[in-house]
Design a protein around this nucleic acid. Structure first.
Lengths: 341, 341
DNA sequence: CATTTTTTGAGGTACGTAAATCATCGATGC
DNA sequence: GCATCGATGATTTACGTACCTCAAAAAATG
């Protein structure tokens, strides 16, 4: 049988009330007594029954997700995953609130962080935008004892507790590795389409991509980044211009959103698909393009997994428990036509 | 506030005892009364508090994992994952027992199933071997109300409740897709090394591989399967023989275990690595070979995820709850040198 | 030493559910 | 009209923990 608080009391030679005071860090216990109780806990291997504790406490975990609004398919997928998690709130004792804010708008994000009611919040998950004000907001949350998790786009050197998302440098390297081999031996140019070079994940992908391209595929010439603002129409415009200016483009790496625009342009070019394509995020459009052969590989991060992982991590941190690292590592998914889920 | 059993009693106009009888399917309630209670449950949206119920019941989940013994690195990884899960038993209310049996031995597996004490078992997870006796054992477990989960290798047309593992046909297709593009335009032969064509997952991978090879890479000639029995030494022997007999081999697909042998042979051939290689399972050897360039891609299934998924599914089924399908889908991981975890 | 303050003990109630006992009521059969 | 039986109610205890009150003991203070 698993030891209980009663066993601690007996083992430490104190009363139940004292054990309770120690366990829940209530005042009024001599330091030496605390030591005795803690020694007994360690000795008999007591672990608190979280379920029973939560029952007694009537605990629920109030969590907040802050996501950018707008058409970005991946962000909408995240949103859907959050809403899906909300349906399991009763079972999981969570109370999930979803805030959406204008995309690429650090001020709005910082302000959203400011207006949160910190008392009794069990965690905040946000898609970070780089800015001092955001860093400060995160620090304030953290210092108030609220676990903070960055989602998809990290905020290094901040007080965030955890990052849920892929290693974007590795993702960029992987894209280069695939694209380089897919285009084969031929020389030519590579077009790179990003959303904005102000968002950390896009910068990192680009960095990883360049590393591998330069080191391993010197025959390929990587063109300057096209910024498509994660918007289909813009992507279509800039990419079409690029392909016209450079008829010898043999590969395209789309590292942001707005793939719809890229797909349109490539499919309009007609049959001779001498262009290999690697893109990010498995949206419906990307999936179709993968099936039809317009896109050769899609690098994906699973929105559902990320949201569930964020919830697990916030709950664990709120309880003062360590997360299962191995379980919480978000993997870089590579989808070809043949392993589509 | 979430409704409780008391609220049901009030809403249905019956006593707590009757609600309890209905909820726990105890006898002694008229059908019409059952109907009234169930209507009230649906109306007020009651969901049982599993944590409280498990506390009251002193429930633990006795689970059994049956794995093949032997040197197969992936099976050992599964075993490690089971032992790791065991360390979380106290928190997760599980009581995990691990049985190992001789590999490729359906009789031993069937016998292991026979000797299980079915009363109070919350689930059995097994790496299936194809055989009638195994199917019967699974059926007996299922009929006794014990959830059965197949792990890694499925047993279709059996009474198993769930399969935890990848789609092996898709894995084979993916391997072909990668290998076909990696070898580029050149003609040549492809060597395929399997463990045994008696194991379903190997057969399925081979099938998927052939599909794509024939359809999309007609310039490549797939040689008959070499059986390496998932054993390094055997793999080395048969593969070395094959490469000698066919100097024009340009690609190798290793769909079973024993990659150590393959790596030795390929690295012994020396520098001119004109051979592209796709293998399965990210063992330490495979990882090193990936880094050094001997292997180009590894297709992997995450043992830790599989074990955790199996546990979640068995617990859910034991509680009569539906698993979260999306969460339990095991993905085909593709690792290149650049996205190694 | 007496007094105040701190520390500890004893005991209770609550959380939401399970499971048991015992009493009650109505209908049935004889 | 009495015994029997099925259905239902009323009530209690328990699970492991949290949290509260009140009293008692111990320690610190003057």
């Amino acid at each position: 049988m698993r030891p209980t608080v009663h066993d601690i009391a007996e083992a430490a030679g104190v009363s139940l009330a004292t054990v309770d005071r120690v366990l829940n860090r209530r005042p009024g216990v001599r330091q030496s007594t605390i030591g005795r109780v803690e020694e007994a806990i360690a000795r008999i291997g007591y672990v608190r029954d979280l379920a029973a504790a939560n029952l007694a406490k009537r605990r629920i975990y109030p969590l907040v997700f802050i996501l950018p609004e707008g058409p970005n398919a991946f962000m909408r997928a995240l949103e859907a995953a959050v809403l899906e998690a909300k349906t399991r709130s009763a079972i999981e004792r969570t109370d999930i609130r979803l805030l959406t804010i204008p995309p690429f708008d650090a001020q709005a994000l910082a302000q959203a962080l400011d207006t949160l009611d910190l008392s009794e919040l069990a965690g905040v998950a946000l898609v970070a935008t780089e800015a001092g004000a955001v860093r400060e907001g995160v620090a304030r949350l953290h210092d108030a004892g609220v676990p903070v998790v960055t989602l998809v786009s990290d905020l290094p050197n901040s007080r965030r507790d955890h990052y849920v998302g892929i290693d974007n440098v590795a993702a960029g390297r992987t894209a280069a590795s695939l694209l380089g081999r897919f285009v084969g031996n031929c020389r030519g140019k590579i077009a790179v389409v990003a959303g904005s070079m102000l968002v950390r994940d896009h910068v990192e992908r680009r960095m990883g991509f360049d590393q591998v391209m330069h080191a391993e595929f010197p025959a390929l010439d990587v063109l300057p980044v096209l910024e498509g603002l994660d918007d289909g129409a813009t992507v279509a415009r800039v990419l079409a211009g690029c392909l016209e200016a450079h008829p010898d483009v043999v590969g395209v790496y789309s590292l942001g959103a707005g793939n719809r625009g890229m797909i349109e342009v490539l499919e309009a070019r007609g049959v001779g698909r001498a262009i290999s394509v690697v893109a990010h995020e498995l949206s419906d459009h990307a999936r179709k393009a993968l099936t039809s052969g317009t896109i050769d590989a899609v690098i994906n991060q699973d929105a559902g997994h990320e949201v569930r992982s964020a919830i697990r991590v916030m709950k664990a941190r709120a309880d003062g428990l360590p997360p299962v690292d191995d379980q919480e590592r978000i993997r870089i998914d590579i989808f070809l036509r043949d392993n589509l889920p």
